[in-house]
């Protein structure tokens, strides 16, 4: 009999802790599929964030460590110095990366660190129960912006791809979205490319996923996916910002 589908060996076969409709599970799976397809599961070291995805090390079938909040890029820089040949990545949410960890991500890009950062932008603090993030959209209701975020009170949302692509040693920067199967396939292609460019040791590689948090958005899973595809994609253009020649 011909096998037409098999779960990736990159995911440990247990139920995840993520809510129904959450983007984390999809992002985990495509990253792990890419690592499996390129035969990298045995020589990868990953860093999980503070955020809902701190649990990723229960699901991703590679060597991993936790991090202090926002510092995963510094931790990965340390790992890279000890392991010049391994695949190294960080996996970070938008509170982790775009708020408390801005210095570390900017300077990882600035030094052209040879690892990949997967950035899950769900426009909210998931784990702590739905507070406003720097990426929260104008008008979006959160527990710390109950009437919707305003420019006067909190400024305009931070676009990390746009910031990082200004940094010369960030060589691959792409924003993708996890709202439907076609876009998930595109997201997977971006992950694969980022890892290939990491292999070439050309510089820092970054993939941002526009992702859903139905629980804290107060939306049904399907509506949350529509919110990603419409509201989020409106403010955060889904595109490639930078690719080195030859990729």
């Amino acid at each position: 009999m011909k096998t037409i589908f098999e779960p990736t060996k990159g995911m440990i076969p247990v139920d995840t802790s993520y809510c129904p409709g959450c983007g984390h599970g999809i992002a985990h799976r495509i990253i792990m599929e890419c690592l499996e397809e390129r035969g990298s599961l045995g020589n990868t070291i990953g860093v999980v964030p503070i955020g809902c995805a701190i649990n990723a090390h229960h699901f991703m079938n590679v060597d991993m460590c936790e991090s202090t909040h926002g510092r995963a890029p510094a931790i990965a820089a340390g790992i890279r110095r000890v392991h010049p040949d391994q695949v190294v990545f960080t996996y970070q949410g938008d509170g982790d990366l775009a708020s408390i960890g801005t210095a570390e991500i900017i300077h990882a890009a600035h030094r052209g660190e040879k690892f990949t950062t997967f950035f899950i932008n769900n426009a909210i603090y998931g784990m702590t129960g739905g507070q406003m993030a720097p990426t929260t959209l104008i008008g979006q209701k959160t527990t710390t912006s109950v009437n919707g975020r305003t420019v006067e009170q909190a400024g305009l949302p931070l676009r990390m791809c746009e910031i990082l692509s200004q940094i010369d040693c960030a060589v691959f920067v792409e924003r993708v979205m996890l709202n439907n199967p076609a876009n998930v396939r595109k997201a997977k292609a971006a992950v694969k490319k980022a890892l290939d460019i990491q292999d070439a040791r050309l510089g820092f590689t970054f993939v941002e996923f526009l992702s859903s948090c139905p629980t804290n958005w107060g939306l049904a899973p399907k509506d949350a996916l529509n919110y990603v595809g419409q509201n989020m994609a409106d403010y955060y253009p889904v595109r490639n910002f930078k690719t080195p020649e030859g990729f």
């Binding site: 991090s67 340390g78 570390e104």
Partner: peptide, 24 residues
């Protein structure tokens, strides 16, 4: 060995964690 001038002491201690957790 390897040297990094970290962007802050926060980064330095966390770089140290990563390098040591991975066995350096």
């Amino acid at each position: 060995g390897a040297f990094i001038q970290a962007e802050s002491e926060l980064a330095a201690i966390n770089m140290a964690f990563g390098a040591s957790a991975s066995g350096g």
